[in-house]
Design a protein around this nucleic acid. Sequence first.
DNA 1: TCTCAAATCTAGACAGTGTAAAGTTAAAGC
DNA 2: GCTTTAACTTTACACTGTCTAGATTTGAGA
Lengths: 208, 208
Amino acid sequence: MERKLNVVKIEKNYHHGDLRQALIQSALALLADKGVEAFSLRETARRAGVSPAAPKHHFKDTRGLLTALATIAFTRLADALEESDAAAAQDLSSRLGAQGAAYAAFALAEPALFALMWRTAMFDLTDINLLAEKARAFDSIDRLVRGAAAPRVPHADPAMAPTIACWSLVHGFVCLMLDGGLGEDRDAQAQATDTLLPAMIGLLNIRN
Amino acid sequence: MERKLNVVKIEKNYHHGDLRQALIQSALALLADKGVEAFSLRETARRAGVSPAAPKHHFKDTRGLLTALATIAFTRLADALEESDAAAAQDLSSRLGAQGAAYAAFALAEPALFALMWRTAMFDLTDINLLAEKARAFDSIDRLVRGAAAPRVPHADPAMAPTIACWSLVHGFVCLMLDGGLGEDRDAQAQATDTLLPAMIGLLNIRN
DNA sequence: TCTCAAATCTAGACAGTGTAAAGTTAAAGC
DNA sequence: GCTTTAACTTTACACTGTCTAGATTTGAGA
């Protein structure tokens, strides 16, 4: 029954070929489908067509897989922020608006992935790749708010107030929206993102 | 062996007396101990000294219990916000600072309970008591930011920008801090709450 | 006081979960 | 071609939530 003639190995092999990548894809799909709370390693393996214990060879455990997913999430966020800033106009306020919109757009496009990023009990927060991507995202914000020439200081330093304020404002707004703080109406949420968010950013006294 | 003479029934009865309340207490303790992710209905029952299925009579399921806990959380937050405003000075900026500090203090004092409030997939977001307490908390913020005389409008209304901005800023800051966005150093976090948060609120253009 | 129904809890079971240990298969290295 | 090693399966165990049926206690009515 099984045709073994195909050069491209489509039929199920014992060795998968690139199971690691396949698992990540399954996991991303599962996450998007069911959300963070309903995520399951077994279901991920099932979707990839392998046994429940197969992932262990590529990720130590669920935590390991989720660490990889969170890293991907931070990569995508950092990319989105950098791109939005590169494409934006020259004046600061519109650049701030563009980056805020990019942040919100990313979160609304992949809410489960965005939620995972902040479920720090679920993955390894000290993972070096994850930290790098997270720092890249943060730097993108900081570079815009405090200026490319501003000296790097610890997060808790008073000089960081504008950056953290900007980040907090947008992050908080997005979280409240996704987590039911601003009602459940999807249309109202979209409208809030389009009109309310820029207005809110405009209330912030940022000048560099 | 068992002394039945005590008027106050201390020994273990088949009927617990007030299992509902006991379960809530166990659940709150468990939540504080292990966090939201590690919460378990069976463990809650175990701590209350009853069988795994006992909670069903008082809460339909885990979701039901968590809805009760989230309602308690919103009640406490609303209380804290109202009290802080009642005790604060008269000028707007210090009142804003006080309420922001109260919000942060609540979240830092009970991080797991605070986290639960926004895990909207875990409980019944349409519960009428929960909605009432949540609205009370929101009204406390809105009353301060937009003034007691300001007309009530939908959340997405442009007039809401100051309120949502204020809430988003503080909420986002607290979330970032609890979820590792601002590093893991507890001392730095405490310092950030004391010095950075007021500075950030000061950056907001609020006048009513 | 006795009885009986309702409320409350226990016991047992089932389908899920994560993951550890041991066995099987295929590929790679010599 | 043979052996080693990596990749995967199988099996098993301890958890989880929740369903069912049954046991116990309480309280209300006769």
